[in-house]
Design a protein around this nucleic acid. Sequence first.
DNA 1: TATTGTTATACTCTATAACTATA
DNA 2: TATAGTTATAGAGTATAACAATA
Lengths: 146, 146
Amino acid sequence: MSSDLGAPPAVTRRLGYLLKHAQLRLAELAEPLYEPLGVTGRQLALLTLFGEGPAQSQQDGAARLGVDRTTMVALVDELEAKGLVRREVAPGDRRKRLVTLTAEGERVRAAGEEVTRRAEALLLDPLSERDAEQLRAALGRVVRGE
Amino acid sequence: MSSDLGAPPAVTRRLGYLLKHAQLRLAELAEPLYEPLGVTGRQLALLTLFGEGPAQSQQDGAARLGVDRTTMVALVDELEAKGLVRREVAPGDRRKRLVTLTAEGERVRAAGEEVTRRAEALLLDPLSERDAEQLRAALGRVVRGE
DNA sequence: TATTGTTATACTCTATAACTATA
DNA sequence: TATAGTTATAGAGTATAACAATA
C-alpha cells in the first residue's frame, strides 16, 4: 500500500491535457468544413463576435475574445481584406473603429454558424444529448469563474 | 419573429471559445504555483509523462503527448539542462533514447503533482464535486473519441 | 494625460526538410 | 530502406514598445 496503489497519475487525466486535446480534435473536425467557406475557424469566431448585438469597437472585441488589441488589428485586417467586415469611425468617439459585417460577411457568418454546429456535434458524438449539454454548461461556469 | 428571436449565437457558447478560455484560466491559476518549483506547466506535464510506467523513448512520449518528435527534442533538452531527466540509449535498439527521471526530477514531479491538483481544484471551484468529475469524464471521452 | 488604433519588432510554439546513426 | 534522434529553418500566433489621432 505504498505509491503503487491507486491509479497512476496519467498525463491524460490532467485537465490541461484534456482541454488541449479536445481543442485539437475540434480543430481537426471543423477546419476542413470551414475551408469551402474560405475562412478559418478563428475568422469565423470573429464574424460571430462582431455579428452579435450592437456594433462593437476593435477594443471591445479584443476584450471579449481575450486577445491583445494589436492582435485584433491583424485579425480585422484579414476580414476586411476579404470584404467580410467594414471599419467605421464611431460617431461620438472618433478614436474608435466600429467593426460591422458586410452583406457577404453576414452570409459567411450564417453559413459558418451551421458548420460550427455540425463540427461540435461530431466532437460531442460520444456523449448523450444530456451529457453534452452538461459539458457545455460546466465549461461555461468554469470560464466565467462562477 | 425574425432573427431577433431565440438566444444570440454568442461567441461565448462556442466549444472552441470555451475550451480555449478554460485553458487560459487554468494556466493563469497554475503557472504562479509552478514557478517556485522552477518549471513550467508543460515541463511538469513531461515529467508526469516520463515518470509513469516503464521508460519510454522520446518518440513514444511525443506520440502520447500529440507533438512532433522534433518538438520533443527541445522539450527534453530543457529538462535535461535542469538535471531533471536523463537520456539513456535503449538496450536492444541503440537508435532510441529512453527518458528517465533523475532523483531531483522525481522530487519535482511529485511536488508538481500536488500543485497541479490545487490548481485544478481552483479552476473547478464553481462546480460541485460530482459535476467536476463529470466534466473530466466527458472531456476524456470526447478526446478519446469514444 | 489617457485611450484607440496602428506599426515595427520580438518571442513562443510548432512543424517541415535534411542530416546522422542505427536497424 | 526505414526509423530515432537531431539540427536548421520557417511559419503561425501572440505580445511589448513607440507613435499618431483623438478625447
